[in-house]
Each structure stands twice: as C-alpha cells, then as structure tokens.
C-alpha cells in the first residue's frame, strides 16, 4: 500500500533558478510531519507540486500512489491551506464554502459543520474581504476540512491565529492524526512544529537535508549528558581520567561526551557520589534547524 504522501526525486526549475532539486521524502499514515526550510528553500513549490498546481520538471509527487490530479474524489482525499484569504473578497465565507461543497458533491449541512468547527458560524454571512487575517485562516482551514480528507497539506496554518486559536489548531491536528489522517505542515513557528509534529523534513536549497522523528533530531546532542550536583566536580575528574570529554555547562554542572549514561551511573555508584542531575541533553528544534540549514533564515 503506497504511503499517503511520497515525493520522489522531485525537481523544479524556474528559468535559471532551481527551486527544488531531487527532493525525496515520505509522509506515513497517521503522522504529522513538519516541513521546514529557510525562505526560498523550495517548500511552497514542493507543496504545490504535490497538489498538482505546479508541474515538476522531473520526479514525482504522489498522493496515495498517484498524482493528485488523478484522485477520484479530491475533496475527500486531500484538504489544503496554501495561502491566507484565497477567496473572492466580495463573496461571503459561507458562499465560498458552498461553491466548494457543490463542486465536491457535499451537502450544505457539511458547510455549516466546518463553520462550527472553526468557530466562524457567526461571521459566515459576511464578505470575506472584511475578515481579519485569523478569520481568513479559519476559513481556509474550514475549506480544507470540508471533505473530511484523509490527508492535510498545510502551509503556515497558524498564521494570524491568536494563542487560543493556535492551541485549538494543535488539538485539532493531533486528534485528526490520532484518527489516522496524515498531515504535512509547513510553518515558520518552529516551536509550534516541535509541539505538534511527529517527524520533521528539513530542506535547504531545494534539497532534503534530513527526515527523522523530532525526538530523534532534538535528543542526544551528539550523545552529550548533563551532570550536576554537589559531587559533580569529582565525577567530572573521574570521567576525564577515563577519557571522556567533559566541559562546563552554561547553567552550571558539566556536559559530558564520549561515555554512556550507564557508565556514568556506575561511576556514581562506585564512588558513592551525590549527583542531583544526570540527563541526556536535548536541543531545541530551532537549534537543529539552524545547524542543518546554516546560512539561511528560518522559514
């Protein structure tokens, strides 16, 4: 059975500029995947290629094993938010959704349901041109959810949402993923991606840099461990004598590399040392991102 989303050797060139260069990654079922890269890394081009809006020069972008334009029931297959406020400003939010519902053979009752889901029922009769950024984003999310699709592709879905809206979005996406939906989410807000996503795909200059579960990316810091406590200096000495690399930590204690946590624990027990902290050091997703995409702005 094909993966919900597969990108194989994707390449797109605009004139002399290579936007995406032999990019490959997959999104598995029931996973939330953060799609990260600096500005101009090729994220939007990739997402639009996946949705059949852009024709790649070579390679494939597949939804459930085939190009999206061949999907039998597009609205029930993929929902997407690509741009805030991509609706006719003179049309009401409700009528915008109704045009999409009619095209997808969905009943108007489904429009009312998604309006309720995104908390936009009260403003549904107003013209989209008068909506705030957050309301436009909610309308876009309502459109994406209209067909209760198996796959969601979201480009900066938290744009314009207030903190309560961001939390609502996070809970919504988690519940959808838990129900088996697959979600590819591109965001500038790395802390949000870290909080919401299971995996991350990092690209730079159109190429894949890494694809891994987020805990794997942020954990370890090269296998470093942090130790602290009254006998931490003594432990540090013993570790040095065993060839471990030991240096001071920024907020007190020591950072130890080249020795496992189990070995450190054994040394503590042998020396009857008093240690208040022994923990693997984790990096933030932002640290990982900046390290992987050195030279570019987070995007």
């Amino acid at each position: 059975m094909p993966a919900p989303i597969e990108i194989h050797d994707l390449r797109k060139r605009y004139g002399g500029t290579v936007a995406v260069d032999r990019l490959s990654f997959e999104v598995a079922g029931g996973r939330i995947v953060g799609f990260l890269g600096p500005n101009g890394a090729g994220k939007t081009t990739t997402l639009r290629s996946l949705l059949g809006l852009i024709s790649p020069c070579s390679g494939q972008a597949l939804i459930e094993g085939r190009p999206f334009i061949e999907a039998e029931d597009p609205a029930r297959t993929v929902g997407a938010v690509l741009e805030v406020g991509a609706a006719h400003p003179g049309r009401s939010g409700r009528n915008h959704l109704r045009t999409l519902a009619l095209a997808s053979a969905l009943p108007f009752t489904r429009v009312e349901e998604v309006l309720e889901t995104v908390d936009l029922t009260g403003a549904a009769g107003r013209r989209v041109g008068g909506y705030s950024l957050g309301m436009k984003q909610r309308l876009g999310l309502a459109a994406a959810l209209l067909g209760n699709p198996r796959i969601l592709v979201l480009d900066e879905p938290a744009n314009g949402l207030d903190p309560a809206g961001i939390r609502w979005l996070r809970d919504l996406l988690r519940s959808l993923a838990d129900a088996g939906h697959s979600i590819l989410i591109s965001s500038h807000v790395l802390s949000e991606v870290a909080a919401i996503a299971d995996d991350a795909v990092v690209i730079n200059h159109g190429r894949s840099v890494v694809q891994a579960p987020i805990p794997e990316l942020t954990a370890g810091a090269g296998g470093a461990m942090r130790i602290a406590g009254p006998d931490a200096p003594a432990l540090a000495e013993r570790l040095r004598s065993r060839g471990a690399s030991v240096g001071p930590a920024q907020d007190g204690g020591f950072v130890v590399r080249g020795v496992s946590g189990e070995e450190i624990g054994r040394l503590i027990a042998e020396g009857a040392l008093v240690i208040s902290e022994l923990s693997p050091m984790a990096r933030s997703l932002e640290d990982v991102f900046l390290e992987l995409t050195a030279g570019g702005d987070p995007g």
Partner: peptide, 15 residues
C-alpha cells in the same frame, strides 16, 4: 486575481 483558483483546483484538479 483573488487566488481562489488554487482552492478551486483542490476540489477539481482536472483543469
């Protein structure tokens, strides 16, 4: 002009 073509093509990708 209003960018709604993308939303339209998401529900009917066959141009």
């Amino acid at each position: 002009r209003h960018g709604s073509i993308a939303a339209t093509l998401l529900v009917e990708p066959d141009r």
